[in-house]
Design a protein around this nucleic acid. Structure first.
Lengths: 226, 226
DNA sequence: TGACTATTCAAGAATTCTATTGAATATTAG
DNA sequence: CTAATATTCAATAGAATTCTTGAATAGTCA
């Protein structure tokens, strides 16, 4: 092999690693990571995102522009606003990977996570087993999100009872089943609250830990980011 | 719920996302990504890594320090040098995820990758199927890396024939089998060369696309990063 | 011990990234 | 057409990151 050939491949490898590192860098900003995690739950307008992340609208918009240019998010126009969404399911899968790795690496992170959950909520079964239990009638999965979000990314086998409705109508649920609760993904405290509520009423309830993306497997189609 | 409780959880979430973003940022530098990808193949000294990445030794050392502090790599002392290694298999799994995502997002990256491979090398079977074929005697997986690297992270079912030996002794291989070649992971051109070589001799050969970490599943134990 | 090797440390310059500000654009509703 | 709303653009200051340089450390070998 000629040495020129080697050098050429060397440069190709530089391009490859540069590109991949650039992708990783997109997740390396707290603001952008929050945006993407939010979008993995449901599509939202710039204003909504800004409100939920606590950033300014202009800054949020700028981050979204960049994510759009790189194909990580997509937009569609609504009447008056632009609704952003994740570009593909791979993105939220990747975010899950990232969270997994970070939790493994950082004891501090694990501790912070445990502060979001009430103790004793740790779920004894995984998501697949939970779905199986639902099939056999022994358990129910309850999706605590508002109807709009739940309708966007439905969880297979789950029934949607927004947290407010659960507060008033929980006692109508049958007692002879186990309850696995999900809310807005891994770092939402909603499911933990629901568990507390149901347990106070004598139910056997757990927080099901897994993101919607993994549970669901169905994603909006990728749009052309033009 | 008190509003103070909400604010507190808000801060916890900030900590969480900040931590996770920091982890992602570690992969957002070309130099560090190269280092980690190298280490996913075999442990190496600072000097070796610096040479292979083309960075200065001091700079490489600094990156390694940081990766060490964050638990992404581990060290052990050799006679004279310090041998760095990936901290856990999760890291190389994550790198695979990252590469997958980047390839999906970037057409330019896909094109760059295709430049490393000779056309027609794309493997018709996945890694699991390939191992199955080896078991049934219909195929062989050949690991083209030097013996030292191959010994460190052996690929199940593979035989080790360093590329130099293949050049001289390929014709001794039986003709009635399929050959799946692996080298140093996804972006190494070694396997592509091997394929060209074997095909020129009339063999049915393919580049098996998958990293060693995924093939292997066995990783060095995590060391305390102190 | 002393020379040598491999690595780390420390400080600084250059670059890149992020968030802010205020203005500009575009779309809808009246 | 005009006002109002939602978002984007453009410039900038501040912060953080990266690589370089030259010196310092520590362990090995003769």
């Amino acid at each position: 092999m000629k040495s020129g050939d080697n050098r050429e491949k060397r440069e190709v490898r530089d391009v490859i690693f540069g590109t991949v590192a650039a992708v990783a860098a997109l997740f390396g900003s707290e603001a952008r990571l929050k945006i993407m995690q939010l979008l993995s739950q449901s599509p939202r307008s710039v204003e909504e995102i800004a409100k939920l992340t606590g950033e300014s609208i202009a800054n949020t918009s700028q981050h979204l522009q960049r994510l759009l240019a790189e194909g990580l998010v997509s937009v569609r126009k609504d009447k008056i606003s632009r609704i952003y969404n994740l570009g593909s399911g791979s993105v939220s899968e990747f975010i899950e990977c990232l969270f997994d790795l970070a939790e493994e690496l950082s004891p501090g992170l694990r501790e912070a996570c445990s502060q979001l959950d009430k103790p004793g909520c740790t779920c004894p079964v995984g998501i697949k087993d939970a779905i199986e239990l639902v099939r056999s009638g022994k358990a129910r999965i309850i999706d605590l999100r508002p109807e709009t979000e739940s309708a966007y990314s439905p969880i297979s086998g789950a029934i949607n009872i927004p947290i407010e409705k659960l507060k008033t109508g929980a006692s109508a649920l049958p007692k002879n089943k186990k309850y696995y609760l999900v809310c807005r993904g891994r770092y939402c405290s909603g499911a933990g609250e629901g568990v507390k509520l149901l347990r106070a009423l004598g139910y056997e309830a757990y927080k099901l830990r897994s993101s919607h993306s993994r549970i669901n497997g169905e994603f909006p189609k990728r749009r052309n980011a033009k």
